[in-house]
């Protein structure tokens, strides 16, 4: 067997095993949600749980990085069945339906625009504040003009 092939095979196996690990987190999340009756999807709880374990070094990132990278790379694929569901709602093609769709589009655009602009402003202030804090710590605060 040539070496290249072995490497590819190893990588495929690693990705599959790691997707299995991610699935375990998903099912733990689903379990927590149904046990505590919280109105949140299990996947979001699984995400938070995994992020916490990684952050506190209770789990090595090497155990999931190839599988996670692969799944994120083909993320689109998993949304397609849900989006195709549009065909079950021909009433959306009525005047009211189209107006609601337009409202959803407009509302989303406004949300992206206003949030983006405001977040950028808040971000600049947050950075400025931090830099100011640093300057004061270094004893140069009195030299700032503004």
């Amino acid at each position: 067997m040539n070496e290249n092939f072995t490497m590819i095979l190893m990588r495929v196996v690693r990705i599959i095993v790691q997707i299995g690990i991610l699935n375990i987190f998903y099912y733990i999340g689903v379990g927590i949600v149904s046990y505590l009756h919280i109105p949140l999807p299990g996947s979001v709880i699984g995400l938070l749980l995994l992020a916490l374990l990684l952050n506190f070094k209770l789990m090595k990132v090497e155990y999931i990085q190839d599988g996670a990278g692969f799944l994120i790379g083909v993320l689109t694929l998993f949304f397609i069945p849900a989006t195709v569901g549009i065909i079950d709602y021909p009433e959306l093609m009525s005047t009211t339906g189209l107006l609601i769709i337009l409202a959803v589009i407009a509302s989303t655009l406004i949300a992206i625009y206003v949030t983006g602009i405001l977040t950028q402003l808040i971000e600049k202030r947050e950075v400025a504040k931090k830099e100011q804090a640093v300057t004061i710590e270094e004893g140069k605060g009195e030299l700032s003009v503004d």
Binding site: N23, G29, L54, V61, G67, L71
Partner: peptide, 17 residues
């Protein structure tokens, strides 16, 4: 395919980390 959305959302912990 939709079932894979579960582990795929969990996978977002990786870029987050």
């Amino acid at each position: 395919l939709q079932k894979m959305l579960g582990p795929a959302v969990v996978a977002l912990a990786y870029p987050l980390y």
